[in-house]
């Protein structure tokens, strides 16, 4: 499903390259196009950051969706487990995801 914000915020996405990356297997959350449903594959950051992300519910297998980016392009707003979480792109980069087409549960 699409985020209602697409028309307002999609300009922030680093364009076609991101979309292309999203179609490939194992992209990272920061390059995921807005509104695309994806699933977490792994959380690879250093342990303190990864731990915090996982405590907040970003664990392998969890569905995630990027909603929008903040006015200056960073941080991004992500929906996970039914609530919304703000992350910086550097953190989002440590989260590997696959898009909905590739892994239907």
């Amino acid at each position: 499903m699409g985020s209602p914000d697409n028309n307002l915020t999609d300009m922030n996405v680093p364009g076609a390259r991101a979309a292309e990356a999203g179609r490939r297997m194992g992209t990272t959350l920061n390059t995921l196009p807005h509104g695309t449903e994806a699933r977490v594959v792994s959380v690879d950051g250093e342990s303190a950051v990864a731990r915090r992300l996982m405590e907040m519910g970003v664990v392998p297998g969890a569905p995630v969706c990027v909603i929008k980016a903040a006015p200056l392009g960073d941080p991004i707003e992500v929906r996970v487990r039914g609530y919304h979480l703000a992350l910086r792109r550097t953190e989002a980069q440590t989260i590997r995801v696959v898009t909905g087409d590739e892994v239907k549960p």
């Binding site: 303190a48 609530y83 919304h84 992350l87």
Partner: peptide, 11 residues
């Protein structure tokens, strides 16, 4: 180094 931001946006 810049610290991580992991922030809930509550309803």
């Amino acid at each position: 180094p810049p610290p991580p931001l992991v922030l809930e946006l509550p309803p």
